[in-house]
Simulated assay, not measured.
Amino acid sequence: MKDQAELLRQKMMQKSFQSRPYNQKAARTLAIVSGKGGVGKTNISVNLAVGLAKINKKVLLFDMDIGMGNIYHLINGNPSLSIVDFFERDFPLTQLIQAGPAGLSYIHGGSAFSSLFEWKEAYQEKWISGLQSLIAGFDFLIFDMGAGATKESLNILQAVDEVLTVTTPEPTAMTDAYSMMKFIHMRDPQKIFYLICNRVESRKEGQETAGRLGSTMHRFLNVKPIFLGTIPEDSAVRKAVKMGQPFLLSFPKAKISFSFEQIVHQYAEEPKGTFKEGSRFISKLRRFFTERGGDE
């Protein structure tokens, strides 16, 4: 019965998406990264998507840790299909869209595969066309990027409108965060960067961390990330993970939820002077995939 109910729910959600009027402007595209593992990147990805959905934004969250995805664990999901089914079994991306909490939509990255997923050249245009079919139906496409760097993930990082880097005050996390932003900036000097400092003991600690990172970026790269805010260390996060729920929903009155709501609202407001023309994500993605063989 549970499987039948889930299937019915998914069909209704997909039908709703197909009948949804398109926005006049394409979705803002955001990749969420961290130079170092274990800084809470995926938890932030999920709660940011949930927070945007709570203020009536249409959000599609992609789990790009293909083959090792874990977003569904944080939203008590039970997806039967993953992005691998799009590539290897010809399921359309619209059929992979799962309904999450607070009106969030997400696409599962797949998990527990017996062999590693490998991109094939034939997947390139298929991937671009699939994303093109979605970009006008949402306000935000958010890519929770997996660990490591592949040519395909670099193409996404170069093509998205914005990149959000998650760090903690730990020196190694700060160093890796700077290296990640530098790496992306060297390939796209026009990229808009955001920064969140997670697991801080105090707001001052987070602001000092962001200040050092911002100053280093400005000094050596002539670019300064937009600091969205700090997220305090809070036991509510661990409890929410065990419950399989976003902390914004399971502990709405916790101090971390209060801080995060402010971050969501700040990000939702388009940065003046930086996002006027709408997304060029698809055209840039197509160009980067075309050039990856070294045509430049």
Score class of each variant (00 low, 15 high):
18 Q>F: 10
279 S>F: 09
94 T>W: 09
56 N>F: 00
215 S>V: 02
226 I>G: 06
277 E>Q: 14
232 P>I: 06
77 G>P: 15
290 T>L: 05
206 G>C: 10
121 E>D: 08
195 L>N: 04
219 R>I: 03
257 S>V: 13
87 F>L: 05
18 Q>T: 14
59 V>W: 00
119 W>T: 08
285 L>K: 12
4 Q>W: 13
86 F>P: 13
208 E>R: 06
104 L>W: 02
124 Q>G: 02
208 E>K: 10
10 Q>V: 15
26 A>N: 14
17 F>K: 10
268 A>T: 06
123 Y>K: 02
156 I>M: 04
193 F>Q: 02
20 R>L: 08
189 P>R: 09
190 Q>G: 05
173 A>V: 11
97 I>T: 08
236 A>D: 15
209 T>F: 07
66 I>W: 03
1 M>Y: 11
190 Q>W: 06
154 L>H: 07
206 G>T: 06
48 L>T: 01
261 E>Y: 11
119 W>M: 09
258 F>S: 15
152 E>D: 11
179 S>C: 05
175 T>P: 05
139 D>T: 00
10 Q>N: 13
61 L>I: 05
32 I>H: 00
278 G>R: 06
280 R>F: 12
234 D>S: 12
105 S>P: 07
192 I>H: 09
110 G>Q: 06
132 Q>E: 15
82 S>G: 15
291 E>D: 05
152 E>P: 00
100 G>R: 07
209 T>Q: 10
223 V>P: 03
23 N>Y: 04
45 S>Y: 01
120 K>R: 04
58 K>T: 01
46 V>C: 12
166 V>G: 09
182 K>A: 00
294 G>P: 03
